[in-house]
Design a protein around this nucleic acid. Structure first.
Lengths: 122, 122
DNA sequence: CTAAAACCTGACATTGACGTCAGAGGCAAG
DNA sequence: CTTGCCTCTGACGTCAATGTCAGGTTTTAG
């Protein structure tokens, strides 16, 4: 699979795929002419990378976590596990914050809606 | 209250407060010498603005929502309510996405942990 | 009164994940 | 063989919230 296909199937831009490789999040097999080739596996990997980006992780952080995905066993885990746990907690805190924000919006909307009801009732 | 106090109490930088005003999210009463003065009310407002920023809203979007907070009644509501509902939905979707990402991290961690248990058991 | 601390405006710098463009080469179909 | 699409590298552009600095005024503490 070439880069265009991978990008399309993962739902990202070709530019992004190259960027991921530049950041050490992805490796590619090069054809003699220098073109990148990928396997089915990489589709899932790219979507997972995107998922982490969307969760607010930086390239550097993702780079620290991915070895834990690649090699779900060895001793590299030590620091990576801590990092993973740390990011999990940060994510949880962020989720809670977002939920509070959503509640605030809901409250605003209900107040506005009540006002409207009052007005139309008059 | 002057800008430094407001910033400190809302937990943001002085620069940010000026930026919020520049973006039309905040108004200030100016002393004859040109210094900004605020009331207690603005503390809450700034923290709320920050909350929306953290939730991923842009200055422009926040500017569209705040009138709904200031005037929780009149006819401006129409478009603002739609916008608010739209952002609420976007927020909900994002929260769900983050929860799925957290689940993925949890899964990775449990797999790694299981591997570790297996190894130490040997 | 004076020095420190806080404020003002205006402008340029930063960061990160990309977009976009240029110039050159690769590859399948007709 | 050539036309059109894909890919390559490298570099510069972007956007948004904020940092930071300069040069000057104002307020506050002693």
């Amino acid at each position: 699979m070439r880069i265009g296909d991978l990008a399309a199937r993962a739902g990202v831009s070709v530019r992004s795929v190259r960027y991921y490789e530049e950041q050490g999040l992805l490796v590619s097999v090069r054809s003699p002419s220098g073109q990148r080739h990928y396997t089915e596996q990489e589709v899932e990997r790219v979507t997972f990378i995107q998922r982490l980006y969307t969760a607010g992780l930086s390239s550097r952080t993702i780079a620290e976590l991915l070895p834990c995905v690649d090699t779900p066993s060895l001793e590299n885990s030590d620091a990576a596990m801590d990092r993973m746990s740390e990011e999990r907690d940060r994510l949880s805190a962020h989720i809670d914050d977002l939920i509070r924000t959503r509640d605030a919006l809901d409250h605003l909307m209900s107040v506005a809606s009540a006002h409207r009801t009052t007005l139309t009732a008059k």
